[in-house]
Design a protein around this nucleic acid. Sequence first.
RNA 1: GUGGUUGUAGCUCAAUGGCAGAGUCCUGGAUUGUGGUUCCAGUUGUUGUGGGUUCGAGCCCCAUCAGCCACCCCA
Length: 431
Amino acid sequence: MAESVHALQGFRDILPDEQPYWRFIEDTATSVAQLYGYRCIETPLLEETAVFRKTVGEGTDIVDREMYAFDDKADKDGNSLNITIRPEGTAGVVRAYLEHGMFRLQLPVKLYYTNAPMFRHEKPQAGRYREHHQFGCEALGESDAVVDAEMIGLLHQIYTQLGLTHIRVNINSIGDTICRPEYIKKLKAYYEPLLTSCCDDCKVRFHKNPLRLLDCKEPQDQPKIANAPKIADNLDAACQEHFEAVKRYLDFYGVPYTVNPLLVRGLDYYTRTVFEFTNENNKTALNGGGRYDGLAEILGGEQTPGIGFGMGMERTILELKRQNVVPPAEPATQVFVAYLAKTPELKDTTVQLVAELRHAGIKTEMGYGDRSFKAQMKRANSSNAEYAIIIGENELANGFVTIRRSGTESAEVKRGEVIAYLNGEEGEDQK
RNA sequence: GUGGUUGUAGCUCAAUGGCAGAGUCCUGGAUUGUGGUUCCAGUUGUUGUGGGUUCGAGCCCCAUCAGCCACCCCA
C-alpha cells in the first residue's frame, strides 16, 4: 500500500451513519426559516480578504491568526489578489446584498443559508473544528426591534422542533457606535488602576478587546467584573429603547431569555442586540448572533441596518446526541431480490426486475457477486427489507416470482404483476 | 497559540520489558430452495510515524502526526 494519507487536523469526513443528524437539522432549520419568511442564499467560499478583515475586525483572533488567507494566482501583470476561505457567513451575505442591489427590494430582505462550511485555523477539540458548518439567517434593511425578537424566536423554534430542551437564551445590548465608545472609555478608566492585579489574559484584553474583560473566568478577576460599570447603564436613549422593545416582543414569542450583562461578542461588527444560546451543562455556544447596523457601510454600501446569527451544526449534533434525540431514520429498503442458481438467465431476470422496481419508485436491493442464497437472504435481513422476492428455476420456467413478506407465508405472483401486487399490499397496509 | 493526556485488527478493547490476543464485523459452512437463533471454520496488524536505550520494546526515552481535555477564542 502507498504511504497512508489522512484528513488534515481539524477536518473530518461526515460518514453515512452521521447523515440523518445533518438532514434532520437542515430540514428543521430550513422549514422554520421559511415559515418566518426567509429565503435561501448561497455565497462563495472565497472572498477578498478585505471583506472579512474590515468587518470582523483587526484585533480579533479570527482575523489576526485564524484565517486561511493566501495570494491568488497572479494575472499577466504579476498582480494577485489576497483571498480568504470564509471564516464566517455574514460578511459574504452583506457583500452579495450590496452587489446585487437588493436594497431596492422590499425591506427587510430576509435570507438564510444552510450546511455552509466555515474555516478557521484553530486548535481543534470536540465541537470545535477547522472546518465547521453553520446554518444562519440574516435580515437586512430594517432596524425595528421586532426583527431582532423574531430572529431569536425563530432560533428558539428550531431547537424546540429538534426536540432539544434546557437551552439557555442569553441576550444583551452592547450599544451602538455612539454610546459604546463612551462606555469602553469608562471601562478602561475603571480597569487601568486594577490592571497590575489582573490575569495575563486580561492585560492583553485591556488593549485588544476591552469588552472581553467582562468575560474573564479567573477567580481573581471576578470581583473586578462585579464592580465594573455595566453597559446596560451606559446605553444611550435610543439603544435603551430598542433593547426594551426587543425584550417586550420576545415575551410575545414565548422565548425564555436571560439578560446577561456580561455577554459580549467577539466580532467587531455587532451593535445593540447580541445573543447566544448555550446548553445547560457547559458553556459551549450553540449559536451566536446580533445586530450589525454599521456593517454594510464598512463594505462601501449605504448605511443599512442588519441582524443575523450563525448556528453551529456540529455543536447542535453534539447536543442532540447528549440529549438522546434520535433523528428520523433513512428510508428503509422495501424489497430485496434474491436469485437461487448461478445461471446467467436467472441473474438477468433479477437485474431486469430490480430495474423495473426502482423505476417504479420502490427502494430495492439485490445480491451481488453470485453469493450463496443463504448469504443473499442474510443480506436481505440486515437491510430490513419488508419483502424478499425469490427467483429460481421454477419461477423462471413458469413466469412467476415468489414474494415473501417478512414473517408471513410466501406468495406466487406472475412476473408482470409484481409491482401491482406490492402496491396493493402497501395499500392494504395503510387501511 | 499555551498546558495536559491518549494512540494496538474496519469498530470496541486486552497483553509484568520476553511468541500481539479477544469480542464484534465481514466471508464460507452446518441446512443442495426461503430472512430468526445457535454452532463450526476462515480473513484482518510494519502496535499512528521516525529515531534512540536494551540480549530483547506495544510497554522505557526523544521527536513528529492525530484524537481528546483545560485555556485562549468561537459556532
